[in-house]
Design a protein around this nucleic acid. Structure first.
Length: 146
DNA sequence: GCCAACGTTGGC
DNA sequence: GCCAACGTTGGC
């Protein structure tokens, strides 16, 4: 799961020990579907810092709550407001996520250096999805780097 | 700030 | 359904 550290960094998450935070604001259908249809409580995720000086994996987190309607879509004052969404027919969903641990920064550059991760979805050219599944083999490999 | 690589929107 | 225009993401 990608987050811009200027928006929510691994340290921000670490300031909320044991607390789940809403992963609101996803406005891409594919990313939404991953959260809504595939993510279960307890699933582990890599917390990735994007759009920053040192992009890369900054920590581990886990799903704390199943997907539910993203509350920001209903609030006209919110930047994520969606006029086409109603509480009866919500369009956007989010899970809650909580910190497992902060790790060393495994940079994008380092990730790209491993042949084992060649096919990793988030490393593919042109990929802009903020949420992507990680293959078990890729997961284990990266855990081994930490 | 630049720009490639998308995804979305809306006219037709 | 097509596709041009536009908006966004995110590395660099």
């Amino acid at each position: 799961m990608k987050s811009e550290p200027s928006d929510c960094s691994i340290d921000d998450l670490a300031k909320l020990p044991g607390q789940s935070v809403a992963w609101y604001g996803v406005r891409n259908y594919q990313a939404r579907n991953f959260m809504r249809d595939q993510m279960k409580v307890g699933d582990k995720v890599f917390f990735y810092h994007s759009n920053c000086a040192e992009p890369g994996i900054a920590g581990l987190a886990e799903v704390g709550r199943l997907a539910y309607p993203d509350q920001t879509q209903f609030d006209p004052k919110n930047k994520y407001f969606d006029p086409k969404a109603t509480p009866e027919t919500p369009r956007w969903f989010n899970v809650d996520v909580k910190l497992v641990k902060k790790t060393r920064l495994v940079s994008l550059k380092e990730l790209r250096g491993h042949l084992e991760l060649e096919r990793m979805r988030t490393l593919q050219k042109g990929n802009r999805l903020s949420i992507t599944p990680v293959d078990p083999s890729e997961w284990e490999f990266i855990i081994g780097l930490l």
